[in-house]
Design a protein around this nucleic acid. Structure first.
Lengths: 340, 340
DNA sequence: TTGTACGCGTTATCAA
DNA sequence: TTGATAACGCGTACAA
């Protein structure tokens, strides 16, 4: 048994398809009597209009597409949560796709979403110029694009993310205020936001007249945890156990920071007495860690909501927009035991 | 500038629409010469076929819908990851929606997905009988449904989840083998899998001739972390600090287990010497906790992949299926310091 | 080898 | 107040 259509109802009630259509959309043209009959029949046979046909007809799909690197990343999934919250209030449905940090997969995501006739696209791009031509083409064909999270992308459009410089600056400053002078910064390789965070780190050091020591900066490949663990372990052993010249660590991502805590525990280095730790992190588990982890928290849900609202506003705009805005939300510094 | 259509190409090249259509699908009816011209033109003007129209025509959308409670839950997002991995190999795209543990929102998700003409649906239902009539109607109209994770749902269809009894049994048995005799089980209110986990817990106790103490069982509301924290704190204070009659805790979910660890640290109770801890958890952070957390890990990605493969196989089946299978994957017990 | 005609389910225009 | 007709973009049976 297939799905009920307008035609089925029309046939059953012996009226025309267009009357049924109008009756169901509560048109003023239709008498209350027939409206009632039609609507009751529809409900009884649980009729659901075919959105595909509807979209094809009216030229709008009431759908927005979202492309992220990886759904299972804590931070990302919180953003998606925000996107859902915001879109739930509207007529728009959301299609999520993930690029897995691969530009070719990202291209495919964009293509698929375009073929599905999305009315707008939100993307956290793989790199700062990934698929820029594809995205430009979208905008050219009246499909607005909003970039979120990784707002260092070169495309000129709406962008919503956080102020990475400020977040890193504040975290570093806090460590310095705790009397720490030899701070190790561990960041991710190919991490789009790494440069700004490094700048914030350097700037806070400089403002406190502490010279930047290039031995106190390392990038680790974020592909697998084994690599991350090895890199962190090596530098901690070298800089803390052997050279005795770090007293704090500032981590650039969720994984880096929590793994650092794990490794310090393994090496029996006491946090924060021997080494203080703070880092960017969006996991609610930070409070459950022992010692509880001081974090720079990004307003993930808010990023998602704001980006969605911006996109929908742009979609509903009748005239094309040529002046774009970049919103950098502030991060929040949450001080817990690991840095006190 | 709107999107390119077959018509546009036909007009530009002065040939018919159907020739263009056939040329692009590499039909044997079309000469190599025209194929080449058409395909080149299409690529140059980056033509993308309209999936809506295509789906409407062929009666298939090549889309599967997924409904989960909450995207930002670690465990769930890992399942979604598996779903994406499996579907990426096929012609099917995936639409995710979340029910937020609300049956009415869940109904809306199902309706929207049906209106979008999904070819199949995967759902982790809110409760054991939520929207059962909706789902039955779907199956009746030839849209297969696979239930994953919360496989205690009453609908008769394919189900993929884990063996909760076995997971709980093994964790409890492990604690007993470590010499623990007074084990507190903390679980979630309205958690579909709670009953089976409780059974596993009880069964392991019984097999070791340890009587079940109803003071050593508590459910906490999972709505917000404040409530969880308060509940856990109260019972730990009562049972450990005041009554001195627990030596281990078995937690039923990610959040419960990690928060338990946080609270024990806060109360300066040493883990595992004073109280050992183990629990169901899928966060990779377990290894970073101090002490590292022993966990019952569910094969989340595998659940997603398996469920997807089952669904697609069913969709591709020509004849309706009447014998359904329930797959219960084994959980994995990972012993770390918190229970040794 | 190419083109014509029709229909998928819906909405919108216009006529009755 | 209702109905006939066309159109959205695509695929396909059939005709040329």
């Amino acid at each position: 048994m297939s799905r009920t259509t307008l035609k089925d109802i029309a046939l059953a009630l012996n009226i025309s398809v267009s009357t049924v259509s109008k009756a169901l959309s509560d048109s003023y043209e239709i008498s209350e009597a027939t409206k009632k009959i039609v609507q009751e029949y529809a409900k009884k046979h649980n009729f659901h209009p075919n959105k595909l046909a509807r979209s094809l007809k009216i030229g709008k799909s009431n759908t927005i597409g979202v492309v992220v690197s990886n759904i299972s990343n804590t931070f990302v999934s919180q953003i998606l949560d925000g996107i859902q919250i915001a879109s739930q209030q509207t007529v728009f449905d959301v299609i999520f796709m993930q690029s897995r940090e691969d530009e070719r997969i990202e291209k495919n995501c964009i293509d698929v979403l375009r073929m599905r006739g999305v009315d707008g696209l939100m993307i956290s791009p793989v790199s700062s110029d990934s698929n820029i031509d594809e995205l430009k083409a979208l905008i050219k064909s009246q499909i607005p694009v909003v970039i979120f999270d990784r707002i260092n992308h070169q495309l000129d459009t709406f962008k919503v993310g956080v102020n990475n410089f400020q977040g890193a600056y504040n975290a570093t400053k806090h460590l310095i205020e705790q009397g720490k002078k030899n701070i190790l910064h561990i960041t991710g390789k190919n991490l789009g936001v790494a440069a700004e965070r490094l700048n914030g780190f350097k700037s806070a050091l400089s403002d406190a007249d502490i010279p930047f020591n290039k031995n106190h900066y390392i990038e680790c490949s974020l592909n697998n945890t084994t690599d991350i663990d090895r890199t962190i372990k090596e530098i901690v052993i070298r800089e803390y156990i052997e050279n005795k010249n770090i007293d704090a660590i500032f981590g650039a991502t969720d994984v880096i920071t929590t793994r650092t805590l794990g490794i310090l525990a393994e090496l029996q280095i006491e946090v924060p007495f021997q080494v203080a730790v703070i880092g960017f992190s969006n996991t609610q588990i930070a409070a459950s860690l022992n010692p509880a982890l001081s974090t720079v928290v990004q307003p993930a849900t808010e990023i998602g909501e704001l980006a969605t609202n911006k996109l929908i506003a742009t979609i509903n705009q009748t005239r094309p927009i040529h002046e774009f805005e970049t919103i950098e939300l502030p991060t929040q510094l949450i001080i817990r035991k690991s840095s006190l």
